[in-house]
Design a protein around this nucleic acid. Structure first.
Lengths: 198, 198
DNA sequence: CAACAATGTAGACGACGACAACAATGCTGT
DNA sequence: ACAGCATTGTTGTCGTCGTCTACATTGTTG
């Protein structure tokens, strides 16, 4: 008869975990604070202690998403050896994989726009994308990329990757074509870069 | 004392127009059927005669969006003369302008994914993107683009453009940089294409 | 002009997010 | 040990929403 204790003990974490599951399975739209509370076995008012309103929960979810994305990108680079092109392929593939596996979560992360700008969310985003900037930097040092601010050349690259993810998630590209398209895009990008400098 | 007639006369259109306004100003999330009905001066049950549920209204909104997008792309190409590169720049800029001016609407159009696949919505989308495919075709004929299925090379290009729009809408790129970034991306893309075929 | 279809109204239901008042539990200083 | 306070959870309420059903009004057609 183990009575459920009055205090959950780790409600915040439990809510975030269940929320991430629900978002992945049914989308952001379907996420309800009350259902979340029921799933975790707590009253409908309890989540309020940890998240003042629904948006706060979504923000926390996005922040966790950035942390995980950053880790996956880092891991992809580390597993790709020293070669710049290989690293680029790896990180792009990893990004698109994340974006298609957790499409709703990514949407959440990008929906930020009109908010904070100074909060922990923004910081988490910068940390995640820092991984890519470092890679760009390596590319410039090795001469594989034209010089200039890493952000400038990086933006075009990042846009391409992000766009592929959007296409796949929008159903305009079949999942099987996904990684091939990424490879094409990266190859195309690098070709455009090499051709110049010299 | 002009009494409002029992029959609105053109409720469907009025709803769509007001809905588009609201979506542009406050986002999809904020769009409420009941508020819409109030704005248009009709009872809360009336919209149901024209849109079985909220999603049906959103679909109709997306369809109208595709029609407008297609028209804007077409118009951009027509106004850019015969030169392929100029046309490419023009269509890309027009797309990104649409995407940033009506970000919420575009989100709506892309959210389609898990639906119809055979409805008028899908057809409207294909019509809009057909404009770009024709342009790709011209590029291949003129030798500015590598050959192959227009969709394959076109996808990379489209992904890049779409990605730039996502970055701007996500607040990671300032609006002032927008058109410059597009120009960069297109130039970069064409460079990668030219260098090869020979 | 009498049916019938199309369109709009009114009321109800359950679910939701937000809020406030209250209760149980944990913690801290003495 | 324990009183006082902060933290965390519960319960009830409010207004809004989407959806559904029954009904009223208007337009149309034979």
């Amino acid at each position: 008869m183990t009575e459920r204790p009055y205090h959950h003990g780790n409600l915040r974490t439990a809510l975030l975990e269940q929320a991430e599951r629900t978002v992945r399975e049914r989308g952001v739209q379907e996420l309800s604070l009350r259902e979340l509370a029921r799933d975790v076995g707590v009253s409908h008012g309890a989540p309020r202690r940890h998240f003042p309103d629904r948006q706060a929960l979504l923000d926390a979810l996005a922040e966790a998403g950035f942390a995980r994305l950053g880790a996956e990108l880092r891991s992809a680079i580390d597993g790709a050896g020293e070669d710049f092109d290989a690293r680029m392929q790896a990180v792009a593939t990893a990004y698109v994989q994340f974006a298609t596996r957790d499409a709703a979560l990514l949407e959440l992360m990008f929906a930020g726009k009109h908010r904070d700008e100074s909060g922990t969310l923004h910081a988490a985003a910068e940390r995640a994308f820092g991984v890519m900037l470092e890679l760009i930097d390596q590319g410039q040092v090795e001469g594989a990329l034209e010089h200039g601010e890493p952000e400038r050349v990086g933006l075009v690259l990042f846009a391409t990757i992000q766009g592929i993810a959007a296409l796949v998630n929008g159903g305009m590209v079949e999942s099987e074509q996904r990684d091939g398209l990424v490879a094409d895009a990266i190859a195309h990008f690098l070709r455009g870069s090499h051709a110049v400098a010299r």
